[in-house]
Design a protein around this nucleic acid. Structure first.
Lengths: 337, 337
DNA sequence: TCAGCCTGAACAAACGATTGCACAACACTG
DNA sequence: CAGTGTTGTGCAATCGTTTGTTCAGGCTGA
């Protein structure tokens, strides 16, 4: 059924290696025009497709990249992944995806599985700030790039958002609107995104000499219910905030739900700002003021960073930090009098 | 760096084939406990990972499935894909994904690429009712399963929603609420989902002897802007509908936006029903009455259907139709007087 | 004329794992 | 003790490509 080089050689009356040289346009060695024509015609006629497995085995390059992602059903990662796939496909790479659901054991398992499949490199979106799996991977010298989240301290092979600048911009936006009691619904401190955004929030609060009440930071989990719960806590405070910086859009949407359930209005009573700008993907975020992260581009950049490492056999010199941008919409407004 | 069978054999002082037999628990041939122990220890010590490429080349089974999907950034396909990946991973298969953006040329290209990579089968979510690419694929006898959309007439190797029953249920729900002028914002007639849902709509309208005005069906495109535009057309009609069945949730969300922009209210002035139930993924659909399609399950079922075909080397006997279920929420209500 | 040099193509050895077969050593059985 | 199994292991071919080397002929130029 499947046509092979050997079979093609038999039909053309030449040695398989000659066929290989024709089909690969081998620059070293030349083949007569006559034979070349004959082979090309036969290959076309039989719809010859080279066997990538055999080729990869021989050349030790599979042109496959492995990607570990918490959950492709999460629009954030779906868009990121789309960027990755676009960039890789343009370089004739394919990608194998593994979902880890943020469980470290599955992260380790996925990486082992992908390496067994002889991928040329790994794109990892599951890193924690302390991550034994990734430490072990570093030790092997295998090419990989961390995307979105990084281990601490940030390594050169990382492509991440400018979380700090984004958090600062978000909080300063709120301060500029006259808010003084500004709360933060954080993500997890185990992840660089959550940790760095919280750091940016705290630093900015302090720099502006605003009250840095520990109650003003509540812990969420990057997801909608976390934002909802967090906001409930904040609303229960004796003196509630007039503005909230949520670690991401999903948490912001949850917070808004809690606020509206409490009979309050956004932004009249409380201003909310998110992070990422998933307004295109999650309709509820359509009017959300947020910090836009070009997610698709971040995916492309991560893929490019990895390919550079693989094809130039060079080690990344420094991390790529993706700039972010404040997008003011309707969920933030002046502080109530 | 990478440990091989041969190297392991050298270290253990045995032939590589013996190592293979130990590591594969070869049932045919037996190995002494002593040698077995020595090999297992060495393999563990060196973290031996078999080279899947070599194995696949030899065994002609790659344990990789190829998946062609229009756009993984679309939550519909992301959830579907997650179901696929879950089912395949459980059977130790990996999956390579290709995005086609619904362009036939890329569909063909993706399938060729995936077959070149020697995938064991294909999961195709990009089928059109008339699809030369798929016709050609059928001719090769290569194992594949169509998911979500099918070619006409529906082949046995398809796993699709019960579009017809869903459409009937949606329209009958509206009729039960007293609506008589019921419109439809359709998808594309080139896709089985769009075509079948429209068919169910029309049949139900006729069966209940309601006015089957051609103006009452407008063409959308499965996406939010299509729903918006379609609804605008319907609102411009001399006699506008009191209820609309949208081909999917995204179109329904767009329709609601158009209605609200026109200063009307859902469901007081116009009832809207969608299809799929992406309420978990797209917040704007939280209160939408819709027809629930268990997307994650459909993905799992499709993967299972394909694996059955591959491992039993049997041809599918008949298509799998995934049942759907009406979910009444707040976007539908009694017909205005 | 012949050493030397192209040209075009064949040869063969990988890559790493799998697997049918061969075979030595040993243990039974009658 | 000859004949017949077992048992444990080695051997070698194979999957489909790639690629360094070899080699036969034909051509050049002194």
């Amino acid at each position: 059924m499947a046509m092979t080089l050997k079979e093609l050689g038999r039909l053309a009356g030449v040695h398989p290696s000659t066929v290989a040289r024709v089909l690969n346009d081998d620059p070293q060695q030349r083949v007569s025009e006559e034979v070349r024509g004959r082979i090309l015609a036969l290959a076309r006629e039989h719809g010859y497709q080279p066997n990538h497995l055999a080729r990869s085995l021989r050349t030790k390059r599979s042109f496959v990249i492995g990607t570990a992602i918490p959950d492709i059903a999460n629009p954030f990662f779906a868009i990121l992944f789309r960027g990755i796939e676009d960039a890789l496909a343009a370089s004739r790479y394919s990608v194998i995806l593994a979902n880890t659901d943020d469980e470290p054991a599955r992260e380790q398992g996925s990486i082992d599985m992908l390496r067994g499949r002889q991928v040329d490199g790994l794109l990892i979106a599951t890193a924690r700030r302390e991550d034994p799996t990734i430490e072990a991977l570093v030790a092997t010298g295998f090419p990989f790039v961390l995307v979105n989240r990084h281990t601490d301290p940030i390594p050169p092979n990382a492509v991440v958002p400018d979380d700090y600048a984004g958090a600062v911009a978000a909080v300063e936006h709120l301060i500029g609107l006259g808010h003084r009691r500004i709360a933060h619904i954080s993500g997890s401190d185990e992840m660089s995104t959550g940790h760095t955004r919280r750091g940016g929030y705290l630093d900015t609060i302090r720099r502006h000499h605003l009250p840095a009440d520990p109650d003003m930071t509540v812990r969420g989990n990057f997801r909608e219910p976390g934002g909802y719960q967090g906001m409930r806590q904040l609303l229960d405070l004796p003196q509630r905030p007039t503005a909230v910086f949520a670690v991401n859009d999903l948490a912001a949407v949850g917070a808004i739900r809690a606020i509206e359930e409490a009979g309050l209005q956004v932004p009249r009573d409380i201003s909310i700002i998110g992070f990422n700008d998933l307004s295109a993907a999650i309709g509820a975020a359509r009017l959300l003021t947020t910090v836009r992260l070009p997610l698709h581009n971040m995916g492309k950049a991560a893929a490019a960073h990895l390919l550079a490492q693989i094809t130039c056999d060079t080690v990344a010199r420094e991390p790529v930090v993706i700039p972010v941008e404040l997008v003011v919409r309707q969920s933030t407004g002046p502080a109530p009098a």
